[in-house]
């Protein structure tokens, strides 16, 4: 079973305690943005086979949203971090690179 450590309350939560929230770090464009940008924000997803950054909510625990870096091909978890992060923090990137040397990096 998938286990993620909630960075807000520190609990190692099992999957049944958590609610998945889809891809993280989606960029929402402001007024005047093109239709393409808005379509991309709403619908287009990376959906990679490999390293994936995603949103989770500790629904049956502290109730807070947080972000996780996880491998969709192996279910390995690289780490979790605060929902307020605009992009993956350096320690998460380092943890991924340590496990996946040929990972192309966050983009």
């Amino acid at each position: 079973m998938l286990t993620l450590t909630c960075p807000c309350c520190g609990v190692a939560a099992e999957e049944t305690e958590l609610a998945p929230g889809g891809e993280a770090h989606l960029k929402r464009f402001g007024p005047g943005a093109s239709d393409e940008d808005f379509e991309g924000y709403l619908f287009a997803r990376k959906n990679p086979k490999g390293v994936h950054f995603e949103r989770w909510r500790h629904a049956m625990g502290c109730g807070k949203w947080f972000l996780a870096a996880r491998c969709t091909a192996t279910l390995e978890v690289f780490g979790t971090y605060k929902a307020q992060s605009p992009e993956p923090p350096p320690e998460i990137i380092a943890a991924i690179k340590a496990r996946r040397p040929d990972w192309k990096g966050y983009s």
Binding site: L2, T16, A19, E23, N47, T72, L75
Partner: peptide, 14 residues
């Protein structure tokens, strides 16, 4: 289905 992205062809027990 499970609620999270997954390519492993295995699902969650619950």
């Amino acid at each position: 289905t499970d609620g999270f992205n997954n390519y492993t062809q295995r699902g969650s027990w619950h």
